[in-house]
Design a protein around this nucleic acid. Structure first.
Lengths: 232, 232
DNA sequence: GTTCGCAAGATTGTCAACAATCAGTTTCGA
DNA sequence: TCGAAACTGATTGTTGACAATCTTGCGAAC
């Protein structure tokens, strides 16, 4: 009866190197934007992106839609997409939101931290102090990100985590600027140490306050830039 | 020949927006989901949505993708979209985030409130008290939304505003449940009055604390539901 | 009676061609 | 000379068809 069969498992392998899909295009484009390869206000022409990433226009389009939802690109009808410009006022707003969100996360981390995680926090604090003392600002900046990331892991607050991630991405360029401001490490190091201590001692209220004061000082710097007309 | 472009009427899409049909489909579908017409877990088949909204499949797909970004629907590859189910644990997380965001907004509202807006707040407070005293819970619920909305308007914090909007949408069904719990209005009315007083007196710290305590009491209710397995 | 495999149907994913629109340039008339 | 209408090239928006994938129902084997 069934003479011919086995048609289901046939898979067509594309050896043209076009195995990429929407997700790949989105991630690569996001990385390119965050790395500064595309500057704010720069147009993102679909044809160029096709050439760059080797993805079909359809998937490029979906990727742009996604990044628009993340607030990284702005799409105007019939005018295409461009890297979204973020004003200083908006930077302050976003940082304010980050302040309260990371405060919430720090508080929850203080409630849930394990002993092993507490030691890891201590270790990062030690490395940060050494980095500042020896003037390794780039290393300090990396440790900064690692600390905030660890706190988010400890808290395990998926909702806040996701939002903080998208907000951080929007500020990627500005944050890099800020961490290199003269005097910043000397100001922020004791703040970081307070946060670590509070979480290690499992004190949610102090952890939240410390985290908020830390980010509030960043907002102060931004406000001073605003008055000086330090345009980005 | 004077080719008079009389395209008035349907074609009047402003160039400020992005997609015309896409936006319409998205808004209508969101309204349908929030009104409970589609229940959580229900599949959203593209063909049916085309029939329902009279929009092309292309735009339906874009709308679904947008709503996925808003956290209202969940898209699985090759399996289509469905109304996202939100667990009680996630409801608590979302409400926690709302707590800190609305706290931030309340604080900023206290800094920026005008005299006219202060009177409007007072008026809403008065109407709320009357609604509770006369047992008009549905009216009280409406006033509740109006109060929170007015506070957001006063604050003028676009970033927090947008996030709160998407979070509220995700909880639309749960919030409706909560506002009808017995005893809730008697608990929340004095909380609302504290918030109004603090903003009117231009005290950001107290306004933030009052708002947070208000929403924290909602979280307490959710936690009690969690222990009882959602069956009171 | 149950379980497994396999085809048929339903549904979503992708593409390439076509239509609509925009930005810049040219042409025409006062 | 100046301004406005019309043209051109580039870019995006949309459609319909087709391919890939999942789900369902049926029948055979145990």
């Amino acid at each position: 009866m069934s003479a011919e069969k086995n048609l289901t498992g046939v898979r067509r392998a594309r050896d043209t190197g076009e195995g990429k899909d929407k997700a790949a295009a989105r991630d690569e484009l996001r990385t390119a934007i965050l790395s500064g390869e595309y500057m704010p206000g720069e147009r993102l022409v679909e044809a160029q992106l096709i050439e760059r990433f080797g993805v079909s226009r359809f998937n490029i389009r979906l990727a742009l839609q996604d990044l628009s939802g993340e607030g990284l690109v702005e799409i105007q009808r019939n005018r295409g997409a461009q890297v979204r410009k973020i004003s200083l006022a908006e930077t302050i707003e976003i940082t304010q939101v980050r302040m309260v969100l990371e405060g919430l996360v720090a508080a929850q981390a203080a409630e849930r931290v394990t002993d092993a995680q507490a030691s890891e926090l201590d270790e990062i604090g030690l490395l940060m102090r050494r980095a500042v003392e020896s003037g390794e600002f780039r290393r300090y900046s990396d440790l900064n990100q690692r600390l905030h990331g660890l706190i988010r892991t400890i808290a395990g607050h998926a909702t806040a985590d996701r939002l903080i991630g998208t907000l951080r991405a929007q500020l990627a360029r500005h944050q890099f600027m800020l961490s290199l401001l003269p005097g910043r490490p000397q100001t922020s190091l004791p703040q970081h140490e307070r946060i670590i201590t509070a979480i290690r001692e499992r004190d949610p209220a102090v952890a939240e306050t410390a985290m908020r004061e830390h980010i509030a000082s960043v907002i102060e710097v931004l406000r001073s830039l605003e008055e000086n007309g330090g345009h980005p």
